[in-house]
Amino acid sequence: MAIKADLAGPENPRRRDYLQYAAVSVAAVGAGVVVFPLVNSMNPSADVLAQSSTEVDLSKIEPGQAIKTSFRKQPLFVRNLTPKEIAEADAVPVSALRDPQTLEQRTAKGHTNWLITLGVCTHLGCVPLGAGEGENRGPFGGYFCPCHGSAYDTAGRIRQGPAPKNLEVPKYNINGAIAVVG
């Protein structure tokens, strides 16, 4: 029958299929390209990124004082260490530390008195005490987490309790009296 014969296979399958393969491949590429903006839309939006760095005015913080502020919606502790606190921190043998770091490694070059750390306990995320006036600074004179008893020293390093790591130091730059965090 005339039409049945028309349904028979092509004489040159390779040549006929080429266009079909090309169309499907290009369409697949197109689909892949469309996926990118969809997935990228889930990345932080411009307003979130604009708040991704915080400026801290250091001129108001006296030696021995600390302030609590916010960085990327998380607590940030900014402390002006006294020479006594710096000496205390340097006196600790690094090998005895759970998370070995010197104070110098945890501060900006030439600004070892500025201890800028996240106010988030590295155990399970509570906000440690010690940054505010009159708060309990724990047995090591730094910060103390009331949830499970983690104690941090004057360099924000973990000395006692369940926390595995020192308080996180975010990326920052000090320009004059302004610290730009993030």
Binding site: P37, L38, N40, S41, S45, A46, D47, V48
Partner: peptide
């Protein structure tokens, strides 16, 4: 304005 490709969505 802020979401990446939000205007397109």
């Amino acid at each position: 304005r802020d979401v990446n490709a939000g205007w397109f969505l």
